[in-house]
Design a protein around this nucleic acid. Structure first.
Lengths: 160, 160
DNA sequence: GGTTTTAGGTTGCAACTGGAAACTTATAAA
DNA sequence: TTTATAAGTTTCCAGTTGCAACCTAAAACC
């Protein structure tokens, strides 16, 4: 990830991502949503978060299109919060952070264990992969300008 | 990620991970470190962060073993901050969050582009993979108890 | 149809956290 | 010896968070 070229540190998408997810509780609320929680009181009692902060975060996550709120038809007092496509797209980030915490902070395997529903085998470690599937480390990455990027063989074939 | 079984929402490794990385600026400082920044003034001028907060975050990240600090031998005023192995292990999390921001927030491809140093081709999307490499979505995941986990074929072979 | 219950919030207030700018300390350069 | 510089500290103020108590609109009960 070294080299002369460097990422512009403040115009990139990471600050944009942190705009919606960088506040305290946001990740924990998101995880609760991934775990099937849907209602204000569920979040409140499971997480032990203050009600005003929870209300604030749910509104913020909804504003950012990460959660969607919908009044339940059978009891219109009940609001169901559920992940949007955009919210669900945070799955790899969340699992990556969880795996990191497991490996480097708690140092105990999570319990219960997250497995592939199809074959009930544990999921792999989230990693950065090359186009061909090799796992890449920090030192394997560099920044490149569009013209320095190797062409996709499929595209080359199509162009021939 | 549904089913009767659910993750204990407050004893898991995610809160532990957020303990060190959940504060404002932590991720941006980490990213700057990945981009080869090493010194207080570099972080300060690149990120525009308040000096006291920067000092606080650098100390916190150092305490948590994510960065290490070392006075440079040629100029002992200069402190070099660099990523530890533990800090470098946050690479997949950071790339995942960046890719998410790129896809769902800024909606423009990052520039410059992160490529594999070996073949200069863009890196893949960070995703959750099954043991055999299939990409898993939220609905493909379930929580399992140790006894419900399918055995690893390699281990089975070894046991036979 | 009037009272009660409940989900999902607000409000008020104390404690904590974040930021800008000035100040400090140790080291190095002139 | 003075001056400059890296890396913080300190001060002060504004904004955010957390907790408890209160509010409100929609069901549910009678």
């Amino acid at each position: 990830m070294m080299g002369k070229l460097r990422e512009p540190l403040l115009e990139c998408s990471l600050p944009a991502a942190l705009e919606s997810m960088g506040e305290r509780w946001s990740f924990l609320i998101l995880r609760a949503a991934f775990n099937g929680l849907h209602h204000f009181e569920e979040f409140q009692s499971e997480l032990g978060i203050a009600r005003n902060i929870l209300a604030n975060r749910l509104a913020r996550l909804t504003d950012h299109g990460i959660l969607q709120r919908e009044a339940m038809p059978e009891d219109r007092r009940k609001i169901q919060y559920s992940l949007t496509e955009k919210g669900a797209a945070l799955l790899p980030t969340m699992i990556a952070l969880r795996q990191w915490g497991e490996r480097w902070e708690t140092c105990v395997p999570a319990f219960p264990i997250l497995v592939d529903a199809r074959d009930r085998r544990p999921i792999g470690e989230v990693a950065v992969h090359a186009h061909d599937g090799r796992v890449l480390k920090k030192t394997d990455l560099i920044w490149a300008l569009p013209q320095d990027i190797a062409a996709d063989p499929d595209q080359m074939q199509a162009a021939e």
